[in-house]
Design a protein around this nucleic acid. Structure first.
Lengths: 356, 356
DNA sequence: GTCAAGTGGGAAAAGGTTTTCTCATACAAT
DNA sequence: ATTGTATGAGAAAACCTTTTCCCACTTGAC
């Protein structure tokens, strides 16, 4: 309601603006038409390469439009076409660790199509989420992409019966929706196989809380590939847990691990630090591999971490293209699409950098 | 006659709606009007609390609108009012370290006003930047906020002669524009004074590249408050530089510093690690203070870093409110506005946690 | 009984664009 | 000369709201 009030006020102000500086009033297709001495219909058809007209007329109109700096009003166009060339990105990942790459991918894929992206950060606040969704719907977004920080959690808002397409990326979607996620199992396999290939045999797995779906998936792949040689240490997603886990492992009797597969880069970093404090050399004595490829952590660790990248930008790109396809009415098969992870080789494992 | 025609038309539309499953075609004010048995003008006036009509008529229309789930089409509204309730955020900070808090502040301030935010990440690519700006302008944004990762650099695109208001936040603006930035001088003073208050006297300053404006400003404040007791070590913004700087300092003859004021949290972290490796205790032997309050770094350091927070979210909030004011034609004094920093007390300095 | 003022509500224009339909001209074929 | 057929271009409707008139009716006063 207060919105409307402000709106009234702004209308009054506009005249004042005209008086003060004449900044208002964009160039419309009417200006183009009258400058070219044609009707607006002809101008429109010329600019959109539709309709029939003389080639030289078309060219002339286009030229004039360019010269006077005409740009079509997307609001008017959207009103008619029911396409706003706008999508919304909804996220509850306040920190942006996952959202930012996804966002970059979406934007990257859609900017060529003239689509802009509303970013809405909702912090697990259902009311805020609903406010944002309503605002986007009012603005006639062509679609919504929901993203989060966890594969097995929903956003705190129901997106299932909207009249615009919804695509889920890195968060749990509804039945019959399109969902993009990383293939954590494959990523974990990549990591463990790399350690095996480096000749390591006693590979430990230090990871996050067991209730995370991706933790269980990665641990499963670890068990499968590594063959249960070492136990899995579940904890939290922090450096200090990585540090502490090394304490636990080295307190035990028997042979120590010669490799660590860590659930994320922060844990890996904590572990590497702990190993250094014990005088254990990475990668000579112990190889360490992380997960996430969070540059700020992985690249700044000494030595820099070899790690698994979930290719979130590519994930965002595909989510963007998919929501666009849906918006244009092209058919898209519903279901969960797993995108492969990629191993980023740095120096914490020995081994060589990848060819590419 | 007219009435009958409109009625027929609406009937047809409704049938079509029912056939397709009801997903297409949002509810418009026409539906509200016909459901309430009034004209669309009356419906509009009822919903906007304008015009004259019976109180019970107004209430009835509002109730019906609510019941059938009417939401006004922002495109149509915007076309008329020339306000889209949309602003653009332009950033070249790919990593999001600075942009994300700023974005959060903007969104936080504007969501109550029904304004949504386009996020455009341009990676120092002028062509990409222009594409995004054009797309936003076409979509009739009410204003643009430009933000970056450095106070003394411009975005690679000229925003000076747009017909929408532009506000700069954490990036260099043009003459006569409104610019928000952190008060790095005050922030640095805060840090050094805190160290002095903790009884430290030999305070070293390890910081980033001298060509950064904020580096010089912070160093200036350091000199002023600490009284030149120790030299300034300029380097790069990385942990390894912090690590190396400790090497340089401790290689020198004479008394060692008893406190470090670091140019950012990464440097501080590198320094803390280096000190620990030398068996020097933080904060008992040396107090360390960082800058940025980048949680992922500051909170995970052992011990967690006391650091200076630039209050970027508040900065974003003010930038958002300012661009809104400008969009509504309210007068705003141009110039640079410095926002105070805040000291976040953790454990790397001794001292107590703040009261609040 | 007429007039003025007040009240409740509607018709229509406006905003910028696209699209469908119609019209006018020219030219070829009959 | 008449019909038929391309061809080029314009008029008008449509998208959904808001806002500005304007009309019809009631009431009270003279």
């Amino acid at each position: 309601m207060e919105v409307v009030k402000a709106f009234l006020k702004s209308l009054q102000k506009e005249e004042a603006l005209n008086l003060t500086g004449g900044k208002r009033g964009r160039i419309t297709i009417h200006e183009v038409a009258s400058a070219a001495g044609v009707s607006i219909s002809t101008a429109s058809k010329a600019l959109n390469d539709t309709g029939r007209m003389g080639a030289e007329t078309r060219e002339r109109i286009k030229r004039i439009a360019g010269e006077i700096g005409y740009r079509p009003n997307a609001l008017a166009r959207g009103l008619l076409s029911k396409r706003s060339f706008t999508v919304g990105l909804l996220t509850n990942d306040t920190y942006g660790r996952f959202t930012l790459p996804v966002m970059a991918g979406i934007s990257d894929a859609l900017v060529d199509h003239g689509v802009s992206v509303f970013l809405c950060a909702i912090e697990d606040d259902p009311a805020l989420a609903q406010t944002h969704v309503d605002a986007m719907l009012d603005k006639q977004v062509d679609g919504i992409i929901a993203t989060g920080k966890r594969l097995d959690r929903r956003l705190p808002v129901d997106l299932s019966n909207l009249h615009v397409p919804v695509v889920y990326a890195f968060t749990e979607g509804t039945q019959d929706s399109v969902t993009f996620r990383s293939d954590d199992e494959q990523g974990a396999r990549l990591a463990v196989e790399w350690l095996l290939k480096a000749g390591r045999r006693r590979i430990a797995h230090i990871t996050g809380p067991e209730e995370f779906f991706s933790v269980r998936e990665r641990a499963g792949a670890y068990h499968q590939v590594a063959g249960h040689r070492e136990p899995v240490l579940y904890g939290v997603w922090s450096e200090s847990w990585g540090h502490e886990a090394i304490g636990q492992l080295w307190k035990r009797s028997g042979e120590k691990p010669d490799a660590l597969f860590c659930g994320n880069d922060q844990i890996a970093r904590g572990a590497v630090d702990a190993l250094r404090e014990r005088g254990i050399k990475v990668p000579q004595d112990v190889s360490v591999i992380g997960f996430d490829n969070w540059e700020i952590v992985a690249a700044q660790t000494r030595p820099p971490l070899t790690t698994v990248d979930m290719e979130l930008k590519e994930l965002g790109r595909q989510a963007g293209l998919t929501v666009l396809a849906l918006a244009e009415g092209r058919p898209v098969e519903p279901g969960v699409r797993k995108l492969p992870c990629r191993l980023i080789v740095r120096q914490s494992c020995g081994g060589n950098a990848p060819k590419e």
